[in-house]
Amino acid sequence: MRIGVLALQGGYDPHARTLACFPEVQVSLVRYQAELDSVDALILPGGESTTIGKLLVLQGLWEPLRKRISGGLPVFGTCAGMILLSRQILGSQQLILGLLDISVERNAYGRQVESFEAEVEVSFSPERLNEKAPAVFIRAPRIIAVGPQVTVMAKHEGTPVLVREKNILAASFHPELTDSLEVHRYFLNQVC
């Protein structure tokens, strides 16, 4: 299974290192369309969503990416990656893919000094409810509304932080900055 990590800007290295822990996975960094065409699934990492969005357009990746995700490409967005997938950003006209039916507020938890680590409870399946997982939140976006087709898999202090809609998984935190492989394992086994 070839899993791509969008590597235009941001936290692609920690995702690539996490994926490298799975023997069945071939990791490939995606910067150009030929690389996008060759992957079976894709991770959109954290970073600056304004920068990544602009670079997706400059690289000619915006439409191909939208088409592939709409066509069912399994995709996992963390932090900025989640912002790019979302349908709406509070008070912003920033370019987004609009494929995941959630509304988000950027930097809603505050500036960097308010970044934090927490333990969140994730429900991976009806048999695996409320499993504790470490989470790192960095200048994190907040999910302020979710559509009817969206499953909330984890909350932190009442706010959704891990959601899924069909082939799209998204987290407002960074599982790739922790030692836990569980969220990535879920993506590889249940979404891909």
């Binding site: 590597a7 235009l8 800007q9 941001g10 936290g11 692609y12 290295d13 920690p14 954290g46 970073g47 600056e48 920068t51 932090c79 900025a80 960097q112 970044s115 934090f116 680590e117 790192v136 939140f137 960095i138 200048r139 960074h174 900055l177 922790t178």
Partner: peptide
Amino acid sequence: KATWKTKLGLAEMLKGG
């Protein structure tokens, strides 16, 4: 310490820019 992860985490997010 714990905050090291959030400090380093932001630095990681600034890569490639």
